[in-house]
Nucleic acid binder design. Structure first.
Length: 505
RNA sequence: GCGGGUGUAGCUCAAUUGGUAGAGCGUCAGCCUUCCAAGCUGAAUGUCGACGGUUCGAACCCGUUCACCCGCUCCA
């Protein structure tokens, strides 16, 4: 089944109803950046708060039935630049790229290898893609055609494309072309944002905006162990902005250059890591379902070994929780990655800083560097998934409504006087003032009741309380349900309890 | 980064072969209204994405640029 609506419709509603706007729009916008409007901010904050509550304040029970121990931190976006050398990001996020002018293809330079005849510096060189048998066969075929004979493996010289000189690159044939010299020189694509610390500037003061929040947690591992009386296994959580100079920002807020992450680093003994990995994969999928992603648009996917990140190679892999967005349909896009990072990060920081970063288990009398299971979720992407999931075309007057889970809906309820006279506004205003002490609610007395319902449908408000003529007689009001557009009548004194009850379901 | 497309009011879109911008919806005000964008009256809103050029005159033609969408590419 394909998505019954287009991304343009959703983007249009987000703009129209104040969820998301293009950043610096009056200046023509800026590629890869978006602003959250009033409703989008509420929505995102609700998702963020739900995560913090469910992961830090009230985490799930562990496999042994005991509550998990998780604490939160909020680390600086800018850290000592050595952090990113130790983490591998300075190396790993600086991929040299090569473009082919003829085939319009782009390759990672360090993923290209080259074939040539041994000892022959005047002939042609043929590039092929690493670990791609077809590409290798094609390159060898082209080389043999060029020298007009079959070559034995002893006669063929292989080297990395990055080792070629400018002259050699000029006589190189790209993987997907037959002419020489179509490949550009390898260019660095730095995925990390540079900035300068200090007013005087200068290269020696260069620093980076963090490309992930995780490192701030590893940096503070010993601080937390020394101050919080935590025992392994335990977790440290953090929510915050991260920055990446994506080559191609695309698909609304899905791949933006400034985004928010919700990351947990779960520290455990190596022997238990596999068990915790399975535990977190399972729990995190359930969590997303609880947030309202329940229609089968979620899937779990184990990474292939060749797509593992540099930090995950030591461990046992990465599981992606993916969502079927309208722009990925029928494919899926990553919402959260649950990675087994091994003890890569703590070990690297031990090595680069020279500081002791480990844990001593008094019971076992064992000192070790904990392994890490990392459920790393995208708050921005999660917000987008909630928007995509909620968007529900319908034949009602608004033609569409946002079917948010009440727990994460930006506005929980609206209070209307049926008509703006006869004492109804006074009662409605009083109810509104009572309700807003506990929940985000809106009062609206303007225009017809139908328009007010329609507005709330597009904002995704799950309940509308209406004070009508009967209220004056018997103290009852109607509650209109967003999803069914049906009403029930309750006593006005029970309205707050009614809403509390619905939001806690 | 490449190829294609789009850019006019908050949103969706018009504007005859170049003659200094309109509609619907929404928004706002008033009246009316006892339950689903109802009705009546009125109002506000655009440097036609930006810059430059051609022209007596450009939303329209040309160039550059920016943003968004689609397809490649990339994706910790």
């Amino acid at each position: 089944m394909t998505t019954p609506y287009s991304m343009e419709e959703l983007v249009s509603l987000c703009k129209r109803r104040g969820f998301i706007f293009p950043a610096s729009e009056i200046y023509g916008g800026i590629n890869g950046f978006w602003d959250y409007g009033p409703l989008g901010t509420e929505l995102k904050n609700n998702l963020r708060d739900a995560w913090w509550h469910d992961m830090v304040h009230c985490p799930p029970m562990g496999p042994d039935g005991e509550p998990l121990s998780i604490v939160g931190i909020d680390s600086s976006i800018i850290q000592n630049p050595k952090v990113w050398e130790a983490s591998g990001h300075v190396g790993g996020f600086n991929d040299p790229m090569v473009d082919c002018r003829e085939s319009k293809s782009r390759y990672r330079a360090d993923h290209l290898l080259c074939l040539g005849v041994k000892g022959d510096t005047s002939g042609q060189i043929y590039a092929y893609i690493e670990n791609d048998d077809d590409s290798l066969a094609s390159a060898q075929k082209k080389l043999e055609k060029y020298v007009k004979r079959t070559l034995s493996s002893e006669e063929i010289d292989t080297c990395a494309l990055t080792e070629l000189s400018v002259e050699e690159l000029a006589i190189t044939v790209g993987p997907d072309t037959k002419t020489v010299g179509t490949l550009t020189e390898p260019r660095q694509f730095s995925l990390m944002f540079d900035t300068t610390v200090g007013a005087t500037g200068g290269e020696e003061n260069k620093a980076y905006l963090r490309p992930e929040t995780a490192q701030g947690i590893f940096l503070n591992f010993m601080n937390v162990v020394d101050t919080m009386r935590v025992k392994v296994p335990f977790g440290i959580a953090q929510i915050g902005k991260a920055f990446r100079n994506e080559v191609t920002p695309r698909n609304f807020i899905f791949r933006s250059r400034e985004f928010e992450q919700m990351e947990l680093e779960w520290f455990c003994h190596e022997d238990e890591a596999q068990q915790w990995y399975a535990f977190w994969c399972d729990y995190r999928k359930k969590w997303w379902q609880q947030m309202g992603l329940t229609t089968g648009n979620l899937q779990m996917r184990q990474h292939d070994s060749d797509e593992l990140a540099h930090y995950a190679k030591e461990g046992c892999g990465t599981f992606d929780i993916e969502y079927k967005f309208p722009f990925t349909d029928p494919g899926y896009g990553e919402l959260e990655g649950v990675a087994h990072r091994g003890n890569y990060d703590l070990s690297r920081h031990t090595e680069f800083s020279g500081k002791k970063i480990n844990y001593f288990d008094q019971q076992k009398n064992e000192r070790y560097t904990p392994h890490v299971i990392e459920p790393s979720a995208g708050l921005s992407r999660g917000t987008l998934a909630l928007l995509c999931e909620a968007y529900t075309p319908d034949d009602r007057p608004s033609k569409v409504f946002m079917k948010f889970n009440p727990r994460i809906a930006p506005i929980k309820a609206a209070i209307f006087p049926l008509v703006n006279k006869n004492g109804m506004p006074e009662i409605a205003t009083k109810l509104h003032e009572e309700m807003r002490k506990q929940h985000v609610v809106q009062y609206d007395a303007k225009q017809s009741i139908g328009k007010r319902y329609a507005r709330m449908d597009e904002a995704g408000t799950p309940y509308c309380f209406v004070i009508d003529g009967d209220t004056l007689e018997d103290n009852t009001i109607t509650v209109r349900d967003r999803d069914t557009a049906t009403q029930e009548r309750i006593n006005i004194d029970q309205a707050v309890a009614f809403l509390n009850d619905k939001l806690n379901q």
